[in-house]
Design a protein around this nucleic acid. Sequence first.
DNA 1: AGGATTGGGCAAGAAAAACTTCTGGAGCCC
DNA 2: GGGCTCCAGAAGTTTTTCTTGCCCAATCCT
Lengths: 310, 310
Amino acid sequence: MERLPPLNAIKAFEVAARAGSFTLAATELGVSSAAVSQQIRNLETWFGKQLFVRSGNRIALTDAGHAIYPQTARALGDIAAIGRRMLEGGLRTRLVVSVPFSLAELWLAPRLAVLLDAFPQMAIDVRVEDDPVDLMRQNIDLRISYGDYHYPGLKLVRLVHDDVLPVCAPEFWRRHGNGDPSLADLHESLFIHTNWGPNYASHPTWAEWFTASGGSRAPDPSHGRRVGLSSLAIASARLGLGIALGQRVMAQADLEAGRLIALSPVSVRLGHPYCAFMPPAKAERADVAGLVELLVKAAPATSGKVGAPR
Amino acid sequence: MERLPPLNAIKAFEVAARAGSFTLAATELGVSSAAVSQQIRNLETWFGKQLFVRSGNRIALTDAGHAIYPQTARALGDIAAIGRRMLEGGLRTRLVVSVPFSLAELWLAPRLAVLLDAFPQMAIDVRVEDDPVDLMRQNIDLRISYGDYHYPGLKLVRLVHDDVLPVCAPEFWRRHGNGDPSLADLHESLFIHTNWGPNYASHPTWAEWFTASGGSRAPDPSHGRRVGLSSLAIASARLGLGIALGQRVMAQADLEAGRLIALSPVSVRLGHPYCAFMPPAKAERADVAGLVELLVKAAPATSGKVGAPR
DNA sequence: AGGATTGGGCAAGAAAAACTTCTGGAGCCC
DNA sequence: GGGCTCCAGAAGTTTTTCTTGCCCAATCCT
């Protein structure tokens, strides 16, 4: 095959020709109008032919531009079709979602329940595994992770930037609380410490929480209970084993049901947001997009910003 | 139209799939194999699907890769066809060549004569005009200019890096020369000075030539003859009006025919090469490519380097 | 076997392409 | 005529792409 014209310029041309305006084309492409102008000129220089006539603030296709537009549209349409074809690739696919251990039970499950309630026939696989995950080899459609720095090249959607606050079971508080929500006098052994394991280091500590609440206590982890999973901390607190720094999104249901109580409005943000990652092509699948949307909407209280594809 | 897969990655994929090797594909694309490897991975990440299986130093298309290859080939072929179509755009076109005044008569004309001798029915327009020229608006296929800095975006081919040397008519030398090829004693009024006009400043002067030849004379332009065109300097010398610093490519024919004699082997290079410019798409037209090739070959003595497309 | 060769992966920095911002000018509309 | 919209152009910045240099695995070749 001989040398091809610059493909991105072809793309810009197709959009501009269809839109009849560089500005509209720019909007559609998500760039500035000057960028479109440059790409078009680029293509004109390549061909040595004008494709648009400019008259003041208006443009129109030249004869040459008219001649090639349908071909560009068809070729690009074909390429778009390739993308679509990739998604179907077995069409009968289930939606495969991968989450870290900590999120599976207390965060994803209830949200999926909502979704499955609405679409009972929806086929979803949930895989529970820690980062890093190879989405390609395992045919995963959507990965949810802590932090927005994993998986370069994948489309990224920020779901929720969670925070932690002290929670415990109501009976526990009745027995040990002494009515002091500053927790200043609570015995060290009653604190539950969460350890996120070797790969993560940004989970807030009790010391940080005390600092944020204006105190200065720093309970010694070696004296209290220690758990290796944030969802386990919640579960432990629910069972009356102590006071945990529980993540809000995980404790929510227990708090509303009265199985847990929050001992203070003071909370500490996690170091990173929870994010969804997916191959850009799969972001257009209706089921993937729908699930992501649900997950974003489900937590409007603390966050929900949509990131640009990378 | 929805989001398109990265087009350059598609291109890399098509070539790699056809070549069956990243390295061969890299050669065809004129890039390194690592670049191809990256583009393919890029596309795989976009789709969330492997397109090649890698086993050691060998690659093979996956089922998914196999499935999309024909579509990519067709779409890219369509786009290549667009390029070809642009060239034909009236098919009945003549070849339009644009040259600066100085080159038209003594350089281009004899070379075209060779070409037209071989292909008498070839339709060529020669336009004579100075830089800058708008190739697009005037439908020019090939522009020849002094210097390689004009016309960004156009494909550039360096034709010849010329030099100047002192020439005069044989009778003139018999009458005024005194047998002294160092020209040290020649009367100032017998030097012909070339002035390239307001846009150019790099034409070698007599002072430079004397320096190059080991002397130190600097004839005063206000005393000798002055011409505003390098071809006119040659013509003047041929007519016995004085000694000119003549460009080799222009004096060649007169030197061989004995109408001019070179007074010294010492020459001074011009500041820039002569270059051909053309829209990249037109570089593939057989007539354009043929003419450029002829022009390059016609001057192997002093240069003939081919530049990369810009 | 065992060394040499070929072809691809990976990471860092370099080069090239694309984009943004700002400014200016031309036509259109009131 | 004045304001508005839209495109062009230049300069500077960001992003993408490519190269370089190194490694490893499989193959090839005595």
